[in-house]
Write a protein that binds this DNA or RNA. Structure first.
Lengths: 233, 233
DNA sequence: ATAAAACCGTGTTATAGAGCACAAAGGTAG
DNA sequence: CTACCTTTGTGCTCTATAACACGGTTTTAT
């Protein structure tokens, strides 16, 4: 556990949504219980079955939340980007983790003990409403995802994933290269298909000039057509 | 809209989780804004795309939350039982409904305008924490469901649905007949399969003596074996 | 009572996508 | 540099499940 001494201003910049509604005393409590942790590429952040202890906020890097299904097949449930909070759901539900989390690339994460968060929640309604909103958004996404993953065909699912990655992590300076470089396997696990089908479908998209691929670099060329493929399933 | 005059005691019994944390003034506000609505069997309660206006609590009956996917195929996302709250997620997320709701059987539902709920939330932390907990539980269920529906085979999915229905709505006096009578189509939509496959798999289960079927009455005989089938997928 | 519609059951066919197997390429470690 | 492992790519086979067709039955509406 790398623990750095940070100023209040630095912390405020890390976790603005959490920080803003707090009173000075509440902020002081947060500062006292604030730690920072680094994770290497592909390192596991938490595992299925573990007991949740901390709220986490991703300060830099990219994280996947996933779940091992039948026969060891892994399904990526959602991905986390900069300044997103995670790992708190299970604590609120009084459960152990039903998912696992791992770093796509080197990450910096800040941790705040969940009991501290609970205390703040009891004192501060704006904070509670923040979490209600976050959970509500995530639940809506999860419901939509259930239907997409079960009903769309392979091309639709992969197209959706590509668009989703663009929306979530954005693009590089050329405005079209996805700024996340995933392995074909991760792409498959995100889109509920086998690795070979992810490879095949990806190169189909490339021959159809919807995208270009250069190793793990994916450039989106025909976004509208991808949207159409994603929509019709 | 059937509006009955109810006493505070009656209301308190309808919505204990919501009622209990409130102060007398908050309770008075709730009483003033409390309405009751009845729905017939198969009646739509709300539609995809509509703007959420009320928190709903199911007082009696059974409700399905579902979503139309590609090609009109409908997927049941979750089901609501007695004293469960629903229809509030979209409002909290500041979205329109992404799902629809319909009555499996005749229902009584109480409605409370969401702005009233928001006001209570701002005043009452226990209430906020109640919603945080509910949403967290639902999100966990939704995540698990995504993996089950995508990875398990037909038999596993149907077995899971049967067990889930038993757990949710319980059984009749004989301790084994499911107390919800679903059409084969609803059973299929719950388990992500076609109606013919639901019919086929159901009668397979019957010939294997795991269940007995008499029209829509389903009796669970070998719960352990069903659990095993559900688990291995 | 009778027509119409919805639902249930079964057989047949078609196909999307999983599951190999294997080769080439790229990365990493000693 | 060499050896080894991981990742990518391609072809082939096989199977789970969708899709369709049709006949019987039950429920609902008129």
């Amino acid at each position: 556990m790398v623990k750095k001494e940070l100023t209040e201003t630095e912390i405020a910049e890390c976790i603005p949504d959490l920080w803003q509604p707090l009173t000075p005393e509440q902020r002081a409590l947060l500062v006292k219980n604030f730690t920072i942790q680094r994770y290497k590429k592909n390192e596991i952040i938490y595992c299925e079955g573990e007991t949740p202890m901390h709220l986490m906020c991703l300060l830099s890097g990219k994280v996947k939340i996933f779940k091992e299904g039948v026969g060891g097949r892994s399904q990526i449930i959602r991905v986390i980007k900069d300044q997103e909070y995670f790992a708190y759901r299970a604590y609120f539900a009084e459960e152990n983790f039903v998912t696992a989390a791992a770093a796509f690339e080197p990450c910096t994460i800040c941790l705040i003990p969940m009991p501290i968060i609970m205390q703040l929640l009891r004192e501060n309604n704006e904070l509670a409403i923040f979490f209600i909103r976050q959970l509500s958004i995530d639940l809506g996404v999860s419901d939509e995802r259930t239907v997409s993953l079960t009903q769309k065909h392979i091309r639709g699912r992969l197209a959706e994933s590509l668009l989703f990655l663009k929306e979530t992590y954005g693009v590089e300076e050329d405005q079209s290269t996805l700024s996340i470089y995933l392995s074909r396997e991760d792409l498959a696990n995100l889109s509920n298909m086998t690795t070979s089908n992810a490879i095949r479908t990806l190169s189909n998209f490339a021959t159809e000039k919807l995208i270009t691929i250069d190793g793990r670099k994916i450039k989106i060329i025909e976004e509208d057509k991808l949207k159409k493929i994603s929509k019709i399933g």
